[in-house]
Amino acid sequence: MSLDLHYKQEKPPDIARKRNLWPRNRMVGANYLYYILLAAVIGAFGYYLYTYRDLSLLYLPEMIRGALVTLLVSVLSGICAIIFGLLGAFGSLARFRPLRWLTGIYVEVIRGTPLLVQLYLWYYGIRLLLSNIGFDPHDMLFNSMTVLQSNSLVPDSFNIFFYGILGLSFNYGAYLTEVFRTGILSVERGQSEAALSLGLDERQTMRYIILPQAIRSIIPPLTNNFITLIQDSAFLSVIAVIELEYITIGFALPQADSNQKMYVFVLGALLYLVMCYPLSVAARMMERRLTPDHA
């Protein structure tokens, strides 16, 4: 048996078609039965959702608001993670040896400890340390927004968001460092040698020759990491960031009936799926387009 891909079969030659010899992926009766059963299962799931529709009417608006917060947090963390990743990648490729050493330590420590521990560290450890020194992001933003007459826009829980996003992006920056590094190193040496011999200096080589070609090999792992980032933003709920998982847990656990508890958890998971599944389908389509065909 072979683990073959589900590719489209080509047209068979006439003789094979006439004699019914060509193996075709026909829809057999059993296939129809499977799809009918799948539709029935999805219908049953829809009925399950309908049975507890009063719970969904009650909780869904708040959960969707939480999902928007999750998306916002993920996008902000993603941008900061890309920044950290670029800094780390250039640091690990630098000629200055202590910088390479420092970046190596950054990547190894962050990749060797759980995200949960890092979030706790940022929130319970570093935040307290910095606030003892006097660094308080919420107060700083509040004071600066007062100048612009809009300090009511700053939420009270800004500190939590600040350190949560910082923790997430610091963590993913380490993984993206490796992704960017691999991408940059995957561009053939000949390209940079040719560019340098044609008279471009190092910065121009990097900017005009290497990075555009590196982006091709960077994009697939980048999108996969971003999808994982959206899911890992659920971890922020343990440091009381009010995003989707926090709201789900807050609504589900007080439920007296276990079935209702399960329903709220399933609703939360469904919202995550709705957010992540289209992205992963899109990521896979993009990956297929970007991968060159090796004949």
Partner: peptide, 25 residues
């Protein structure tokens, strides 16, 4: 595979710990 990779592991552990117990019960 799609469901497991599309939901956070935090959500999965809550579903299994709190939800599966009720279902099995």
């Amino acid at each position: 595979i799609e469901v497991v990779r599309g939901t956070p592991i935090l959500a999965q552990i809550f579903i299994i710990y709190y939800g599966l117990g009720a279902l099995l019960g």
